[in-house]
Design a protein around this nucleic acid. Sequence first.
RNA 1: GUCCCUGUAGCUCAGUUGGAUAGAGUACUACCCUCCGAAGGUAGGGGUCACAAGUUCAAUUCUUGUCAGGGACACCA
Length: 535
Amino acid sequence: MKEILIDLIKKALEKMNVSNILIEVEQPKIKENGDYSSNIALKLTKILNKNPMDIANEIAANIDSNDIKKIEIKSPGFINFFVNKGYLLENLKNVLIEKDKYGSSNIGNRKKINIEFVSANPTGILHIGNARGGAYGDSLARILRFCNYDVTEEYYINDAGNQIVNLGESLKSRYYEKCGKNYPMPEEGYHGKEIIDMANDLYNEYQDKLLENNLDYFKEYATKVLLEKIFKDLKEYRINYDVYTSELAIKNKYNLYEIIERLTKKGYTYERDGAIWFKCSEIFDNTDHVLIKEDKTLTYLVPDIAYHLDKYNRGFDKMIDIFGTDHHGYVARLKSSIKALGNDPEKLEVKLLQLVRLIEDGSVVKMSKRTGKSVTLKELIDEVGVNAARYYFVKSSLDTQMDFDLNLAKSKSNENPVYYVCYAYARIASILKEVNYDEIPQKFDTLNDEDTYNVLEKVYEFKEVVKSAAQRELPHLITNYVYDLANVFHNYYSNVRIITDDLQATKEKIMLVKAVQQTIKNALNLIGVIPPEKM
RNA sequence: GUCCCUGUAGCUCAGUUGGAUAGAGUACUACCCUCCGAAGGUAGGGGUCACAAGUUCAAUUCUUGUCAGGGACACCA
């Protein structure tokens, strides 16, 4: 309907010899201002050098359409449209026909998008910070797929480097401890419970036969076990990746020194204090950074440059990385390397999410895998369920700082808006158990009151919301929307009795609530929430 | 010191990329189940949109500055 109105305005403007201006149509907050409204006359005052009210009247005089019931001009120059509601009933039919596809579109046109998220180091199990990034990344992927983007969900596994050495040492130390021997815990060691569990498992299976094994054994064992745990938790959280890329594999595939050489040839490196530096301050960064350390080992940046080079080589139209804000200083370095190697840095978009702070007994606790202080994803799922967890973490924008208190979350989990939405779904399921019809009527004769239009308009809005969420990459628009939809439905439910003696009216109302239920389901699916038939 | 994010009702947060009278939840108050699920609905109070300038017909929204909170500034990853 918006498109139709924009088109009508465009044609009216052509008659007035005006073109090349962005026409916007929006839905006013209050009903008296029409179903739709445009501010075009206000925007044209300068260009036409005329009073906005006169311009608005002139535009209105040039519009004639069966879709429009009435046009009102309101000060200072808004054009308010009151439209015929036939399109809402057409849309109702579409929902019932398209079912799970309702709301989908082709705005993506098979554009290739890579979304890399969570990518937690395998040095511990996932915690609530990962739960937020996961909820965001996976929901965005679902939304983009729904709009026919060709989406790859990717996890980068940091299975090389110092942190893995520390992990191996930590496990070895715990294992020795279990065997009654002593092996020093590294200074940067990991103290999580999962490390102790692994040591116990090893001891129970092999007793003290592994004491002679080298560090590689412990490194590989710990990495393997932790990765299994990570992906098991993610699967339970309803996240399934398409691609896993490991740092070790990148190191095998690319000659990292050759990549540094390429940077050198372009004049982007230099030597200082025995180290090789990347001149990223000449590109996006404000300081330079080290590539090869004085001891000749490589910094973390180098394999990551190779990893992103690899992503570019795979031919995506766009790549999205989701990092915690604690990595924000890193972005300029990374983008500099991309540009230095001749790729378009604009294709990579880094989303920074504000870290989730853990609250315990009323004060902030620093979460850390090293100290083992955290609330794990698994705990969260077990305590509040996947639906509540995913809804909770996706409902706020990435820029919002969140404080998380597990005890509070447990006690208040019933207040989670997800239950309000699921309740609407279950209420409808309950009605359909009483009465249900499959046949979609050719036309609707009884659906013509204000309450019904409110519901139908909300259902219609879904298509716009999905597109907007995809284009702006904001999954929380879906949670906002589905909450509103549930609200409109609960309202309708308390005002209108659905099952009555009037057979025709009942049939049509059943179609209406089925459409609502379908729309709730489709919306929730985009954020990884599965509504229950019964609560 | 430099950079990023945030500041909206007592609390938790939205705010359609600059529009008309700034909205929800929660908490508080008062109503509504003889009837499809009360995990629901209706009504009420509660606001200097941190502050100050600027741009504009129009600023919670954009720009600059100030104040406050969070985070980042490694030859760690």
